[in-house]
């Protein structure tokens, strides 16, 4: 190639750029799934604060939570060859959103409800689903929107 490409050479270079893709659907799925798991785990951990409040139950839950996070982090490093465009931004925003939503809405609601009666598992499940929503939305964005 010369230093000054002809229009035809420029078109060829542009075509080559469009034809070659480095990322894959698999990498998108890996990062989307990891974001969903991180978010859902965080949401469940937060929402189950009252129902699994005993010393042993809390300890087991915390160990399981940390182990799952580490396992997913370990899996991403091995399974994905690329980080799709804006996947990290979506993921961090979604997980942080789930954490914040747990703190400002779900936990206060569950704490308030526990004043009159113990939290039930359906309540915990509902709270976890609500809290996980931002992370699940981020996972969907990584899988289907962010390209």
């Amino acid at each position: 190639m010369t230093n000054h490409p002809t229009p035809e050479q420029a078109r060829e270079q542009l075509s080559a750029v469009q034809a070659r893709s480095i990322t894959s659907e698999r990498d998108r799925s890996v990062h989307a799934l990891a974001t969903a798991v991180f978010g859902a785990t965080t949401a469940f951990y937060m929402a189950s604060q009252n129902i699994l409040a005993g010393g042993m139950a809390h300890a087991v839950k915390t160990v399981a939570f940390i182990a799952l996070w580490l396992l997913v982090a370990w899996w991403i490093e091995r399974a994905a060859k690329t980080v799709p465009r804006r996947a990290r931004l979506w993921s961090r925003t979604g997980i942080a959103g789930s954490f914040v939503l747990s703190l400002i809405a779900v936990l206060p609601w569950l704490n308030h409800a526990s004043q009159s009666a113990d939290n039930t598992w359906p309540m915990v499940a509902l709270g976890a689903v609500l809290a996980a929503a931002p992370a699940l939305a981020a996972a969907a964005a990584i899988r289907w929107i962010s390209r």
Binding site: M1, S21, I22, T23, K81, T82, V83, P84, A87, R88
Partner: peptide, 26 residues
């Protein structure tokens, strides 16, 4: 502008990060 560097940059522009071996193969 150099062909290989253009290919590297064009590939990396599609992602946030890519593994060296995967870029090499691509």
């Amino acid at each position: 502008h150099a062909p290989v560097r253009f290919s590297i940059v064009a590939a990396l522009a599609q992602v946030d990060e890519a593994e060296f071996a995967h870029v090499r193969d691509t």
